[in-house]
Measured scan of single mutants.
Amino acid sequence: MPSETPQAEVGPTGCPHRSGPHSAKGSLEKGSPEDKEAKEPLWIRPDAPSRCTWQLGRPASESPHHHTAPAKSPKILPDILKKIGDTPMVRINKIGKKFGLKCELLAKCEFFNAGGSVKDRISLRMIEDAERDGTLKPGDTIIEPTSGNTGIGLALAAAVRGYRCIIVMPEKMSSEKVDVLRALGAEIVRTPTNARFDSPESHVGVAWRLKNEIPNSHILDQYRNASNPLAHYDTTADEILQQCDGKLDMLVASVGTGGTITGIARKLKEKCPGCRIIGVDPEGSILAEPEELNQTEQTTYEVEGIGYDFIPTVLDRTVVDKWFKSNDEEAFTFARMLIAQEGLLCGGSAGSTVAVAVKAAQELQEGQRCVVILPDSVRNYMTKFLSDRWMLQKGFLKEEDLTEKKPWWWHLRVQELGLSAPLTVLPTITCGHTIEILREKGFDQAPVVDEAGVILGMVTLGNMLSSLLAGKVQPSDQVGKVIYKQFKQIRLTDTLGRLSHILEMDHFALVV
């Protein structure tokens, strides 16, 4: 994948999101292997301009796509893939009243899908469409860049269908997702969380590099694949309309690839034109409109599966009536509230959605109805927002919020430890010299600072030695090549209790 991002070429006709291997024109390309080798690009942008032909009021008969309808489940399912879809609609009884809503608040519980998330729908649909058009064949390999849930859905379907599955996901995604993927037989590649989507090191860039190296491999490409919004247009939206008897006044959905909100909203605009569509985008993402909503100094966020630093091709923002931004604290607070007060075992993005819903639905009156999409299960986040310690460490809970008995030293300040200034190293000294210094002084790690004293990161003896043994660096290389740029900081005025929580999850903390 090139470091400079080429513009994806656009073909003359058809839909841009065809499933299957992508040609340089962004659509299915038939021909000899030699032709494909000559024409197939190194990668295709996940934010390529959409060429979708959908228009409100256009006859369904003019759609270029294969459409399906929700099917009634048999008493005995032939395999677990038949437990994807037909998820329950559940009334939220307490939270709406707590925040003064007059309307009825309903939750579409997508964590009841077989793999635990709304992404099971698009995973199965992308595979079925690729099999139907002859792209996927027995023994082929599926590769997908994902925040985890699409990966789980694909790995689940691949396990049943017999495909090899490789999932490329950023490091910030939970260990629970990784464990589930491994249990399903998927191979996992992790990428830096802070890598831009168009960087060769991003999950998108690495996935395309693997595709170019592995024979008979395919990126189904949830960011561009029409099967993504079509899955929701054909099934999720129809289920909502049936469950609500066609009567709903507002739908609120958090947005990642945009397939969920695009597919549902398009069908609702056709069948229930008075329904307002509300999009939820986390602070630090750029999906919301108008652009002024996205202006923030924050560039990272903890909530998973929603928000991006690019506009995915499948996201149709014209069908969203209003956007709201959400933050991590309210997302996790509301997710825990949904679990504790409503018994809905949902993930953090569901918290984002409901946090926005109780604001947006203030305009609705008694007798009206708001539906929220709860995308995934708490299963993926047992060591994250479900953990009091994690919430404390991230600053989303305060010590006084917890009532468990603490040891005698818990409320003492870090400054009472009488710490001395640490050994520091410059980023320009060599790895070999740094190892000598650390061994001589008896230290395992040291902060790396520039000549102005600005902290650049941390270097550890173990990481340097393993990097040297693996051949990633040489003793003569500058130590700046092996620094940890993500590390926890703590102030002298913070409590030892807070430091204790940090050290339970990290090997060190830097006192500043």
Rank of each mutant, 00 (worst) to 15 (best):
residue 2 P to A: 15
residue 4 E to V: 11
residue 5 T to D: 03
residue 11 G to P: 05
residue 14 G to Q: 12
residue 15 C to Q: 07
residue 18 R to M: 05
residue 20 G to I: 12
residue 21 P to M: 13
residue 22 H to K: 03
residue 29 E to I: 12
residue 32 S to I: 08
residue 32 S to E: 13
residue 32 S to V: 09
residue 34 E to G: 13
residue 34 E to M: 09
residue 35 D to T: 07
residue 35 D to Q: 10
residue 35 D to G: 14
residue 36 K to G: 04
residue 37 E to I: 09
residue 39 K to R: 14
residue 40 E to K: 11
residue 43 W to E: 05
residue 44 I to G: 04
residue 46 P to L: 03
residue 46 P to I: 07
residue 47 D to W: 01
residue 49 P to M: 07
residue 50 S to V: 07
residue 52 C to R: 00
residue 53 T to M: 08
residue 53 T to W: 08
residue 62 E to A: 13
residue 63 S to Y: 03
residue 63 S to T: 09
residue 64 P to L: 05
residue 64 P to Y: 04
residue 65 H to P: 06
residue 66 H to R: 09
residue 66 H to P: 08
residue 67 H to L: 11
residue 69 A to H: 08
residue 70 P to N: 11
residue 72 K to F: 08
residue 75 K to M: 15
residue 75 K to T: 10
residue 77 L to I: 05
residue 78 P to F: 07
residue 79 D to K: 05
residue 80 I to Y: 01
residue 80 I to H: 01
residue 83 K to F: 08
residue 84 I to M: 12
residue 85 G to M: 05
residue 87 T to I: 02
residue 89 M to K: 07
residue 92 I to Y: 06
residue 93 N to H: 07
residue 94 K to D: 03
residue 96 G to Q: 03
residue 100 G to N: 10
residue 100 G to L: 07
residue 101 L to E: 00
residue 101 L to N: 01
residue 101 L to K: 04
residue 102 K to W: 04
residue 103 C to T: 02
residue 104 E to C: 12
residue 104 E to Y: 08
residue 105 L to E: 00
residue 106 L to Q: 10
residue 109 C to G: 03
residue 111 F to C: 03
residue 111 F to L: 05
residue 115 G to S: 08
residue 117 S to L: 03
residue 118 V to A: 14
residue 122 I to M: 06
residue 122 I to F: 02
residue 123 S to I: 07
residue 124 L to T: 12
residue 129 D to G: 03
residue 130 A to M: 00
residue 130 A to N: 01
residue 134 G to V: 04
residue 134 G to Y: 08
residue 134 G to S: 07
residue 135 T to A: 11
residue 141 T to C: 15
residue 143 I to C: 02
residue 143 I to A: 02
residue 144 E to M: 00
residue 144 E to T: 00
residue 144 E to Y: 02
residue 152 I to P: 01
residue 152 I to W: 00
residue 153 G to T: 02
residue 155 A to W: 02
residue 155 A to S: 13
residue 160 V to W: 03
residue 160 V to H: 00
residue 162 G to S: 06
residue 166 I to V: 15
residue 166 I to C: 03
residue 167 I to S: 08
residue 167 I to P: 08
residue 168 V to D: 01
residue 168 V to E: 02
residue 170 P to M: 07
residue 171 E to Q: 10
residue 171 E to V: 12
residue 174 S to T: 03
residue 174 S to R: 01
residue 175 S to D: 10
residue 176 E to W: 00
residue 176 E to V: 01
residue 176 E to K: 05
residue 180 V to C: 07
residue 181 L to G: 00
residue 183 A to R: 02
residue 183 A to Q: 05
residue 186 A to M: 00
residue 188 I to V: 09
residue 189 V to R: 04
residue 190 R to Q: 06
residue 190 R to K: 14
residue 190 R to Y: 06
residue 192 P to F: 05
residue 192 P to V: 07
residue 193 T to E: 10
residue 194 N to E: 11
residue 198 D to F: 06
residue 201 E to T: 11
residue 202 S to I: 02
residue 206 V to E: 05
residue 207 A to K: 03
residue 207 A to F: 00
residue 208 W to S: 04
residue 209 R to K: 13
residue 212 N to F: 10
residue 213 E to F: 08
residue 214 I to W: 02
residue 214 I to F: 08
residue 216 N to T: 08
residue 217 S to E: 06
residue 217 S to I: 02
residue 218 H to G: 02
residue 219 I to K: 02
residue 223 Y to H: 01
residue 224 R to T: 09
residue 225 N to M: 00
residue 226 A to P: 11
residue 226 A to Q: 10
residue 227 S to K: 10
residue 227 S to C: 09
residue 228 N to L: 02
residue 231 A to H: 14
residue 232 H to Y: 03
residue 234 D to G: 08
residue 234 D to E: 09
residue 234 D to R: 04
residue 236 T to F: 04
residue 237 A to H: 06
residue 237 A to E: 07
residue 238 D to H: 10
residue 238 D to F: 09
residue 241 L to K: 06
residue 241 L to D: 02
residue 243 Q to E: 10
residue 244 C to A: 03
residue 245 D to I: 08
residue 245 D to E: 12
residue 247 K to W: 08
residue 250 M to V: 05
residue 254 S to C: 15
residue 254 S to R: 04
residue 254 S to E: 03
residue 256 G to N: 00
residue 258 G to H: 00
residue 259 G to C: 00
residue 260 T to P: 02
residue 261 I to Q: 00
residue 266 R to Y: 03
residue 272 C to P: 09
residue 273 P to C: 15
residue 275 C to P: 02
